[in-house]
Write a protein that binds this DNA or RNA. Structure first.
Lengths: 228, 228
DNA sequence: CGTTTGGTTGAGAGAACTCAAGGTTCGTGG
DNA sequence: CCACGAACCTTGAGTTCTCTCAACCAAACG
């Protein structure tokens, strides 16, 4: 009982379900399942069949394509409120990617059939899902653009400029939410190349790097070096 | 009057609207707009605002990211029955890509507001759109995988093997629906590289190339060379 | 029949990768 | 609190794959 109330609360906190009627939400809460994933734990693997969707309640999850040679290609990171695993579910296909918790995370899992039922009764939910999928399609297109027609420096710079940053006295600051290894993979670079690019930018006096924190002295100047 | 009936017919032929009630379909037909696009004509350009979706009735359309240096990156091709321009519409963002007709094409355009209304009344439509978006998300992920962790040969081979083919006496045959230039761009290669890869495969006795037709002698053997 | 468009082939260059070693940071257990 | 090991990151040297540039060929088309 207490557990179900818990899930109802959790669901209500998610943007996807915010506009949903109490009745429907309770119906979903009754069938939604809490999934705890410890840091480094795989939520699902490439090749497994998808029978529902995941919503991140707390934590951080990464989607990546594994490769036989051991290296992997990071596709995306998911934060609280975001949905993943939906595309393959709608297609009835096996996962293309591994999903791994980057820190201890709490996920909500909803079965396909219950989700479909909810969609049929709640157009707002359908809209949310459409927006969520669109969002990711959009990001993926940007990634494809970046990998296909930009140099390593351009990729890093445009990525830096796209990150949320806060102002400081010496410029604006941003920081990597994850290891540089993962950032490199996300950008389609090797860790070595990312390191070298950051070095160049530092030498050029454009940024300052301290661990995972990056200080951008002059965003406009950075933007300039996208051209060269 | 005749024109509206026309559109109703057209709509009914599209998988997206197949399960729709006659009433709703007629309402959509009343507001749907036929768009004719001549070969090489741009349907929309990167940067323009999206206020509706397109459905291909007849013809062939390509989505590509333009690049300042003139080269472009082909993202996807669309055939009759397929929808495009929906992702940016749901996000209220400007197009990321150019859409160009590869041959004289007939498109159906539906305004955002009317589409939303239809979604709200017809869950089946929402599902179709979800599947359509999922499909493309899936393809895009495969493309990212291909560009990031495969060599030029692997990309070409896996693409060849993914194409629909028909059996012949000397193996299975497939053919490029578009120029090799566009295929190369879709695969993230230069035309030169694609040409060279096809040459190698021909030398190796794995395929036979004649214009846009490719004869695959031994699909299994081809698959083998994905490893090396 | 010239012109354009699409495709092939060759030679050379360059950007990012691989491999290898060294340095940091961080967490953990002594 | 320090010491040690394991990740994580950086730096260097050399290689390789794909691209660029350029010429040439073939087919399509007016």
């Amino acid at each position: 009982m207490g557990r179900k109330l818990d899930i109802g609360e959790l669901l209500r906190q998610q943007p996807v379900f915010r506009e949903m009627s109490d009745e429907l939400l309770q119906r979903l809460a009754a069938v939604a399942i809490q999934v705890r994933a410890a840091k480094h734990q795989l939520v699902f693997r490439r090749g497994e069949q998808a029978t529902g969707i995941y919503i991140v309640a707390t934590g951080h999850v990464k989607l990546a394509i594994p490769s036989p040679q051991g290296q992997e290609k990071v596709i995306e990171f998911f934060r609280p409120g975001q949905i993943f695993g939906d595309a393959v579910m709608f297609l009835d296909r096996p996962y293309l990617v591994d999903a791994e918790a980057l820190e201890d995370s709490l996920l909500i899992w909803i079965d396909k059939h219950h989700l479909y039922e909810a969609i049929d009764h709640e157009p707002a939910l359908a809209r949310h899902l459409l927006v969520s999928l669109s969002q990711r399609l959009h990001f993926l297109m940007q990634d494809i653009e970046s990998v296909n027609l930009q140099t390593s420096t351009q990729r890093v710079v445009s990525w830096l400029l796209r990150q949320p940053r806060r102002a400081t006295d010496a410029g604006t600051q941003t920081s990597f939410a994850v290891s540089k290894n993962l950032i490199a993979s996300k950008l389609g670079l090797t860790p070595e190349t990312l390191s070298r690019v950051l070095h160049q930018l530092r030498i050029a006096g454009l940024i300052q790097v301290e661990g995972r924190d990056i200080l951008i002295h002059d965003a406009d100047a950075l933007e300039q070096c996208m051209a060269g």
